[in-house]
Design a protein around this nucleic acid. Structure first.
Length: 332
DNA sequence: ATGATTTGACCAAA
DNA sequence: TTTGGTCAAATCAT
């Protein structure tokens, strides 16, 4: 795409910077794609088979690939709103507007006579909804994305076939991470899930809580980089499209006991029983991680990435104001 | 035992 | 009012 600055004085510096940023995003998308492919390969073939050392190293490689992939994802989300450029997976429409984050809660009062016979907790605090935190949407074949989520709700949505599940970051209370997501099965093509991410992760796997968190980024949607989305956003661009033929050997940790919601039941049924085809040949679009399967004990996360935004290669003004407790991600 | 999920109630916004 | 998002007790899983 030509070394940008030769054009002359007609271009503003801003344009040059935008071009550079777009280039960087392209590279990141590529890197992410490669990492994803690597991970798929690792999941597919535990190469080496029998040796115990090789299997352990394969597991380590898998985990590493997952970390790399996640780094790319996070970085993209920093730069462009969650990797909207990876729109090969269908369109990634940046929403704005009704992203609601639970705000304060628990104003303990006792003796509110409502319907539910309030237990020892007293009345549920009036949580206020807050509009903030940019949102972005993605289509993935898996609900896994490498982050630790905790499901906190599920709703039937009007005029939709499948319920919507609500997740928040597992470290919401430990680390104040405010990332949430909503996952819903797509009506057509029910192998895919539509995920709406709300807010970015501010948690790191292990992070000293006393020090300043490394990756708190305010949203940059209103910033000077707004126009970047037009670069790679054409859905038909074949840049990041990969056809993966493999059996889908994720292991979902979702195993619902009670009423089978579609999100978990379908996944687990298609994975365990495998009643469609024992070998699902689907076209996956590789923007997303394919599950680091079996997190039985990978709690030994080593060496955090410490991705402080130290190098601003292109003078992005991340306002790295960290709002740890009262997250007030006001967009401009 | 702890921790995650389920699920109806609660609450704010449309 | 209805609808969608969240809370939290009960339940399930480990």
């Amino acid at each position: 795409m030509g070394g940008g600055r030769g054009g002359g004085a007609l271009f503003s510096e801003n344009m040059v910077a935008v071009n550079r940023k777009n280039k960087a995003i392209e590279e990141l998308v590529q890197g992410k794609e490669f990492a994803g492919r690597l991970q798929v390969l690792l999941l597919q073939k535990p190469f080496g088979g029998d040796g115990s050392s090789s299997s352990s190293s394969a597991a380590a490689a898998e985990e590493l690939a997952g970390k790399i992939l996640r780094s790319f994802t996070d970085t993209l989300s920093v730069l462009g709103g969650g990797g909207e450029t990876t729109s090969s997976a269908g369109e990634v429409v940046e929403e704005e507007g009704d992203s609601l984050v639970s705000g304060g809660r628990r104003s303990e009062e006792s003796g509110e006579s409502k319907k539910r016979s309030m237990g020892p907790k007293g009345r549920r605090g009036c949580y206020k909804r807050k509009k903030s935190s940019e949102t972005w949407r993605m289509m993935t074949p898996s609900i896994e994305d490498g982050h630790a989520w905790r499901k906190y709700g599920q709703k039937d949505i009007l005029n939709t076939k499948y319920p919507r599940s609500y997740f928040r970051c597992t470290h919401k209370y430990e680390q104040g991470c405010k990332a949430t997501k909503q996952v819903q099965k797509m009506e057509e093509n029910p192998q895919m899930y539509e995920t709406i991410y709300i807010g970015k992760h501010t948690c790191r796997s292990h992070m000293s809580l006393t020090s300043t968190p490394q990756m708190i980024i305010t949203d940059i949607n209103g910033g000077p980089w707004r126009s970047s989305s037009s670069v790679i956003s054409s859905p038909s661009s074949s840049t990041a499209r990969v056809v993966v033929k493999q059996e889908y050997n994720l292991k979902e940790e979702i195993s619902n006991g009670g009423c089978g919601d579609d999100l978990s039941e379908n996944l687990s049924s298609s994975l365990h029983h495998g009643d469609h085809d024992h070998e699902q040949q689907m076209e996956y679009i590789m923007w997303d991680d394919l599950v680091p399967l079996d997190h039985h004990h990978h709690h030994h996360q080593a060496s955090t990435t410490t991705t402080t935004c130290h190098q601003e290669n292109f003078h992005i003004d991340f306002d790295s104001e960290l709002c740890f407790d009262e997250r007030d991600f006001l967009s401009f």
